[in-house]
Design a binder for these strands. Structure first.
Length: 548
RNA sequence: GCGCCCGUAGCUCAACUGGAUAGAGCAACUGCCUUCUAAGCAGUAGGUUACAGGUUCGAGUCCUGUCGGGCGUACCA
């Protein structure tokens, strides 16, 4: 279903006849050359093995090419080029055979076994319930969810977890803020606390409380009913927002449970047994300087409250205890510093650190009126995810967040996103899909039920048909690469190229009005392309419309 | 100061993780709608990959240094 294994196998067979042994070979790669005139696939095997074999790369390549010629009937062309690349071109019949197999289960095409049977937990969003999700959280949510989908397509069973903390100063402040608004709405003198939350949503929560309880709550503490009401409402709102974005969490993990079951104190105890814990200035310290860090780290403040690092370590231990093979955290660049401390802790506790991995993404810079825009949940001058989706919809929102590599800053021009949505690249993909469906409807009218019958793949000989087929074959590789590298944008790049190949084919090769066998095979090729586009878009959480 | 990330076309970004002549979209320009969706296609123009060294058959990609930007560097989360 993918061309690479065919070539790989042929190389293995050819090697048997040469002196070169597989064990002598460093890792060689098989790639599709950028320039298609070089061939369908290319390998650097001769170059990378030249040193060990003490032989010129061109000479090795020539021998190997000869062996391939005599042993394999898959190729129409085998050549040696440049510094020692071996380039091959497959016979048409290979394309047709592969297409036949692909078409038989196109709807699952792309699924692979790269993470087969693995239990993976992804932690993402994890915003504390102090306000609505912002554009900044959006990138986190979409990256996490899309990674989850990618792993699922690679055979893993995936848990999406939202880790949150409903205690601490922020939440206290939230309760006080709601209480202040509540009192104000009842005509009492009250001021927002210093550093309180100013957003409109606070007033709305207060208004609901006024409606439900009148002035009965005036004597209550901010930390009590007010905080609880705010937390409940905000978490519901967050869930609704995620829902709109096609993000569904499998579990919510409350940080507080790690206090209740004493997990955090057990961590301190275990670390203490290793002699890595001490007291100083009334606080409890983790001797991270003995583990390669330049200074030690506070685990429990002198107030008796743990810092976030302690529950973080306990949380990751909990995940490993739950039997996950891989724990991935999706972090914004500002949280990256917690990661090494967690690893140190987990390592000392005797767990396999390699099971913990992190996807760090850079910040979203919001651009408004051509200027960068500073956001703060507390000041309420943020743009919420809901507002954004009201303007451009969930498809465009998700696509936008995924378009760029996580390691680069994402510039989000609000004005541009709000206007001219027809210039957005997501529509190019959706349009290609809709256009295929439209053609297929016409073909079905023409051919009736016969359309899905036996397809004469051998009629597909046009250059445009070949390059489209070739593109399709690589889909599973792309998914695997994107999952391993944790770079979902690779899927987008691929889909755009695929849509481009399709429109090229669409303009070069008419479907309607051709002889029936040609019409049928081209329609089938178009149909499979649509399915691949749809599969890819579903990985991104984006709709593949039947018409536009 | 130190740590992590980034610097590629006018702008926003790719480049299959070390491969061959660095590619797309937007913006600009030239063509193409009496035959399957013009939200499209074909073409033109645009580059010393921040800079200087190094590693090797081969560097945008790896190493060292310099410059510039972002984020950290809390007994905040």
């Amino acid at each position: 279903m993918s061309l690479k294994p065919l070539f790989h196998q042929a190389i293995q067979n050819a090697l048997l006849t040469l002196d070169l042994k597989e064990s002598d070979l460093p890792n060689y790669t098989i790639e599709a050359p950028k320039d298609p005139s070089h061939g369908d696939l290319s390998t650097n095997i001769a170059m990378v093995s030249a040193k060990a074999a003490k032989e010129a790369p061109q000479s090795i390549a020539a021998k190997l090419a000869d062996a391939l010629r005599t042993q394999s009937d898959l190729f129409i062309d085998i050549g040696v080029a440049g510094p020692g690349f071996i380039n091959i071109r497959f016979k048409s019949s290979v394309y047709h055979q592969e297409m036949k197999e692909l078409a038989e289960h196109a709807n699952v095409f792309g699924r692979n076994k790269a993470f087969d049977g693995k239990k993976i937990i992804l932690e993402f969003v994890s915003a504390n319930p102090t306000g609505p999700l912002t554009v900044g959280h959006g990138r986190n949510a979409v990256l996490g969810d899309t990674m989850a989908r990618l792993y699922e397509w690679c055979g893993a069973s995936v848990t999406r977890e939202y880790y949150f903390n409903n205690a601490g100063r922020q939440m206290r402040m939230l309760g006080e803020s709601v209480k202040a608004r509540y009192a104000q709405q009842l005509g009492k003198e009250a001021e927002l606390p210093e550093g309180g939350y100013e957003g409109e949503y606070i007033s709305e929560i207060a208004a609901t409380l006024v409606e439900g309880h009148g002035n009965a709550l005036l004597s209550e503490e901010g930390e009590g009913v007010f905080k609880e009401a705010a937390e409940k409402t905000i978490l519901e709102d967050i869930t609704r927002t995620l829902d709109r974005m096609q993000v569904k969490m499998d579990s919510f993990f409350n940080e507080h449970s790690l206090y209740e079951n004493k997990a955090i104190y057990d961590v301190v105890e275990k670390l203490n047994e290793k002699g890595l814990v001490y007291q100083k200035d009334g606080a409890v310290w983790f001797a991270t300087s003995q583990l390669g860090k330049d200074k030690d780290t506070v685990l429990i403040k002198k107030s008796g409250e743990p810092t976030y690092r302690l529950p973080d370590i306990a949380y990751h231990r909990d995940k490993l205890d739950r039997g996950f093979d891989l724990c991935i955290d999706i972090f914004g660049a500002d949280h990256i510093d917690t990661y090494p401390d967690v690893l140190r802790g987990i390592d000392v506790l005797g767990y396999d650190v390699s099971k913990i991995d992190v996807l760090v993404y850079q910040f979203v810079t919001l651009v408004k009126d051509g200027k960068p825009y500073k956001m703060s949940t507390r000041k309420a001058n943020f743009v919420t995810l809901d507002e954004l989706m009201n303007e451009v919809g969930s498809d465009v929102t998700r696509f936008f967040f995924l378009m760029r590599s996580p390691s680069t800053h994402l510039e989000f021009d609000v004005a541009q996103a709000k206007e001219a949505s027809d210039k957005n690249p997501v529509f190019y993909l959706q349009y290609a899909h809709a256009r295929i469906q439209s053609v297929l409807r016409k073909v079905s009218e023409e051919l009736g039920e016969n359309r899905s019958g036996d397809v004469e793949w051998s009629t597909l000989e046009h250059e445009a048909e070949h390059s489209l087929m070739k593109k399709l074959f690589f889909f599973p590789d792309v998914i695997e690469t994107a999952a391993r590298a944790k770079e979902p944008h690779k899927v987008i790049t691929y889909l755009q190229e695929t849509a481009q190949e399709f429109t090229h084919f669409y303009h070069e090769c008419r479907i309607m009005g051709e002889p029936k066998n040609v019409m049928a095979s081209r329609a089938k090729l178009a149909e499979v392309t649509a399915t691949v586009l749809k599969n890819g878009l579903s990985l991104l959480g984006v709709e593949a419309p039947e018409s536009m």
